[in-house]
Nucleic acid binder design. Structure first.
Lengths: 173, 173
DNA sequence: TACCACGGTTCAGTGAATGAACTAGGGTGG
DNA sequence: CCACCCTAGTTCATTCACTGAACCGTGGTA
């Protein structure tokens, strides 16, 4: 972080977190990784993000331990990016931020509906199942599907795959 | 948002939220407002933020309905910034992000400890009281105090006031 | 061999953030 | 009356972050 003023003067954990995830595009990369996106090209197409930014963000997240880089083929060499346990725990802030937006910034209904894999109940902003009451649901216990407010006009592979219900963390597309 | 590429291609609530709160410094301004900081000079001193950035962020947050600008004196004219109901609901993402940082990015103990005003129990990352089980605690039911990991080397008025337990949303310093 | 797909890298140009200085409207004290 | 102080901004040249467009390297395929 090279800007003249960084958050060093802030001895607080929020600032530490924001130094890592607060740069433009980073939270959306993390969100996509939690949905199950793994490959550079899929992040690129789904997020419509500049290539250099995506490369740099992935490097940063791997170095920080949020994502893990894994070889999925040797010829030619190809890596994918998988959330670590540390990265999976960012699900809660991602959910809280997204639900705030659903509640306050959405003029149509919910764009994405998150439900509990085991009982089908809706998930609230604290990752609690409103159906059965299960709390602290990790991402692999959550299914995402389109809500009534989602405009379905994207045709990249990830957007197409997310037209169907999809369990978080399962590879996409 | 004038960068060549914005988040318009992302029909998702997380992107809508990040367009508002994702700019550099904004989440820290909101965090301070939730702690109870009200005045331009106090945000300025506590955050050590460039003046022009603070002015612009406050304007944006007022226009978006997250903060409300209120006259606190007429001669000379002086306004303060108070979280709206919409702004107070950002407490949950702020807490979730901060707690993630406490858990994964802190080499010493907790910098800030959040507890339930009514029973004194600790608050977890979902705004649930670990003492009595009360859920969805709003900020005005939460008290913040320094934790064992906080370096107490700041001497601006807000930092000094936060050396004592402080109920969120109560004006600071 | 030419073309394609993939996962990057490079770089000039544009926009955001920054430090430093300045402004306006009061209030206070000598 | 004037000088100084405080507060809440505003201005602007400079630096840094992001971007579009082009390019690169390593394979695989027809």
């Amino acid at each position: 972080m090279a800007l003249g003023k960084n958050y060093d003067g802030q001895d607080c954990s929020l600032a530490r977190t924001l130094e890592l995830v607060g740069e433009r595009w980073t939270m959306l990369v993390i969100r996509d990784a939690l949905y199950g996106v793994r490959r550079y090209g899929d992040f690129l197409a789904h997020l419509d993000i500049p290539r250099a930014v995506l490369s740099q963000r992935l490097v940063t997240l791997v170095e920080a331990g949020v994502l893990e880089r894994r070889r999925y083929q040797d010829s030619p060499p190809r890596d994918e990016y998988v959330p670590t346990a540390m990265g999976r725990e960012l699900w809660l802030p991602v959910l809280a931020l997204g639900q705030w937006g659903e509640r306050h910034l959405s003029r149509r209904g919910a764009r994405r509906v998150f439900s509990h894999v085991d009982c089908g109940g809706r998930i609230d902003a604290t990752a609690t199942c409103t159906g059965c009451g299960a709390e602290h649901l990790p991402p692999d216990q959550v299914e995402v599907r389109p809500g009534p407010g989602l405009e379905d006009d994207r045709d990249d592979p990830v957007s197409v795959a997310l037209r169907e219900p999809h369990r978080l963390l399962d590879p996409l597309p």
